[in-house]
Simulated assay, not measured.
Amino acid sequence: MKTTSRSTEDAALDLDNQLCFALYSTNLALHKVYRQLLAPLKLTYPQYLVMLVLWERDDVTVSDIGERLYLDSATLTPLLKRLESAGLISRQRSRQDERQVVVTLSEAGRALQEKARDIPKSVHASAACDAQTLAALKQELESLRAQLHRA
C-alpha cells in the first residue's frame, strides 16, 4: 500500500487546523451551557445579551443595542419584539428624534436580573478554568475581534 504525504497547503485545509472551527465549535458548546441556564428564565441566548445591555443601562436606542452587540436592526428587531411580547421591555419612538426607537426595561425585565445573577458563576464553573485563565482568554478574543473588524 502506497502512502502519500500531504502538502503543507493541503494540511492548512484540515478542519482541526481551522481557527474558525475552533471558535465555532466552542461557541456551540457554550451556547449549550447557556441554553440550559437560560431555560428557567425563558430567554434565548441572543435575548439574554439584549437584557445584559439593558441591565447595564436602561432607556437605550435600538441602534445603541445593535452597536453594543454587533447586530443590525433587521436581526435585532425580531428579538426585541419577542422580549416586548414577553413583557420584559417596551419600545417607543424617541421624543427627541422620531427616527430612533428607545428600549426600556419593564418591572418584569428588571426583576429578571435578580434571577440571572448566578448565570456568570455557573458558566465559569462549567468552563472548569480559573478566573485568570478565563479573563486572559476573554482579552485575547476581544483583541482578535478588534483586529478582524479592522481587516
Rank of each mutant, 00 (worst) to 15 (best):
Leu54Tyr: 04
Ser85Met: 14
Ser126Arg: 09
Leu43Phe: 03
Val62Thr: 09
Ser122Trp: 04
Glu84Tyr: 08
Leu79Cys: 10
Ala39His: 12
Val103Leu: 00
Pro120Ala: 04
Gln113Met: 15
Leu38Ser: 01
Gln47Phe: 05
Ser94Tyr: 00
Arg95Asp: 05
Ser85Leu: 12
Val102Met: 02
Pro120Ile: 07
Ser63Leu: 03
Leu83Ala: 09
Gln113Asp: 13
Lys81Glu: 09
Pro46Arg: 11
Ser126Pro: 10
Gln92Gly: 09
Glu107Pro: 07
Ala116Met: 02
Val101Phe: 01
Gln96His: 12
Leu88His: 02
Arg57Glu: 13
Leu76Asp: 06
Ala74Ile: 09
Leu112Pro: 02
Leu80Thr: 05
Met51Pro: 07
Tyr48Met: 03
Glu67Val: 10
Val33His: 05
Ser73Ile: 14
Asp59Gln: 12
Ser73Pro: 11
Leu43Ser: 04
Asp72Ala: 10
Tyr45Met: 06
Leu79Arg: 14
Asp97Leu: 04
Thr44Asp: 01
Arg57Cys: 08
Tyr34Ser: 05
Ser94Arg: 00
Gln92Tyr: 03
Arg117Val: 13
Ala111Ser: 13
Asp64Leu: 06
Thr104Ser: 12
Lys115Met: 10
Pro78His: 05
Arg110Ile: 02
Ser63Tyr: 00
Asp58Lys: 04
Ala111Cys: 14
Arg99Gln: 11
Thr44Cys: 03
Ala39Cys: 11
Arg95Ala: 10
Arg82Trp: 06
Met51Gly: 05
Arg68Tyr: 15
Leu54Arg: 01
Asp118Glu: 11
Thr44His: 03
Ala116Tyr: 02
Gln100Asp: 08
Thr75His: 14
Arg68Thr: 15
Gln100Met: 05
Thr77Ser: 07
Asp64His: 12
Gly87Phe: 03
Ala108Val: 13
Lys42Gln: 15
Asp97Val: 00
Asp59Leu: 11
Ile119Trp: 04
Leu43Lys: 00
Gln96Val: 08
Glu84Ile: 03
Thr77Lys: 07
Glu98Trp: 12
